[in-house]
């Protein structure tokens, strides 16, 4: 599925990723943990094609296809989805309109027919109900005036509607209270499948109680410095990142 090899990337001339290597096979959930400034968000932006992030060396492929050669929207159409740490407000564009535009743009890029409005609305109603999102909220401009928790739920709703093949969750737990965390986690877990891979980026172990990872990696100073099973997350929670910061 996702294969990253010796990835180096810079922002504004400063190297942030310094030889990152990582494999996430289909069907697995991998967590990336690390201290602030380790390069966690940079990794998510490099994988999704944000401008201003320059890859200087290495590769990132999804099922063998070179992701780095594709435009951001082409990567999305191939099934890469990023749940943003800080979802953007889209003034004037109702959430339903936005999601339908995105879904049909992706389908068009894949040569699939557009989804008609009635089928789309039915799907949106079902998925919103599962995430305890009031359907009327989807008629409002996306994320404008929404609370932090509402924005995160809206990210998961988009994920559920777009059905990506590879999910990147960037600090999805930040700003969530325990109830919202449960709803969001259930939404993510419902998307776990043998065909799908997930990369869960988080600073804290808390999210991983709800979204159980198959593997945990420690990112420090732009490299993976340790990998292990779920027990590694618990160790980090207990002992902190100090020893890895020194190792880097």
């Amino acid at each position: 599925m996702l294969s990253i090899k010796n990835l180096h990337a810079s922002v504004g001339g400063t190297e942030i990723l310094k030889g990152l290597t990582l494999d996430v096979p289909a069907g697995e959930v991998h967590a990336i943990m690390g201290p602030n400034g380790a390069g966690k968000s940079t990794l998510s932006y490099v994988l999704t094609g944000r401008e201003g992030y320059e890859v200087t060396k290495g590769s990132a492929t999804l099922d063998g296809e070179d992701l780095l050669a594709l435009a951001a929207n082409e990567r999305a159409a191939r099934g890469v989805f990023l749940s943003f740490q800080y979802p953007l407000e889209i003034p004037g564009v109702p959430a339903l309109t936005f999601i339908r535009t995105a879904l049909n743009a992706q389908r068009k890029a894949r040569g699939e027919p557009e989804v008609a409005a009635p089928a789309f609305l039915k799907l949106a109603r079902e998925k919103a109900a599962a995430l305890k999102i009031d359907f009327d909220m989807l008629k409002r401009a996306l994320n404008v005036g929404f609370s932090g928790g509402e924005k995160k739920r809206m990210e998961i709703l988009q994920m559920a509607m777009l059905e990506p093949r590879f999910l990147i969750l960037d600090e999805t737990d930040s700003g969530l209270d325990i109830d919202a965390l449960k709803i969001v986690s259930e939404g993510v877990n419902a998307l776990r499948s043998p065909e799908r891979g997930m990369l869960v980026i988080t600073h804290y172990q808390r999210l991983l109680d709800h979204i159980r990872p198959d593997r945990v990696h420690v990112l420090s100073a732009g490299r993976i410095v340790a990998s292990g099973g779920p027990e590694l997350a618990l160790e980090l929670e207990r002992e902190g990142y100090d020893k890895y910061a020194r190792a880097a």
């Binding site: 435009a71 951001a72 999305a76 989805f81 879904l103 890029a109």
Partner: peptide, 17 residues
């Protein structure tokens, strides 16, 4: 960028906003 990450091509994203 957010709209593009969701699959909307750049020109369409600009026109939409």
């Amino acid at each position: 960028f957010y709209a593009r990450q969701r699959g909307i091509p750049e020109a369409e994203a600009r026109a939409m906003l």
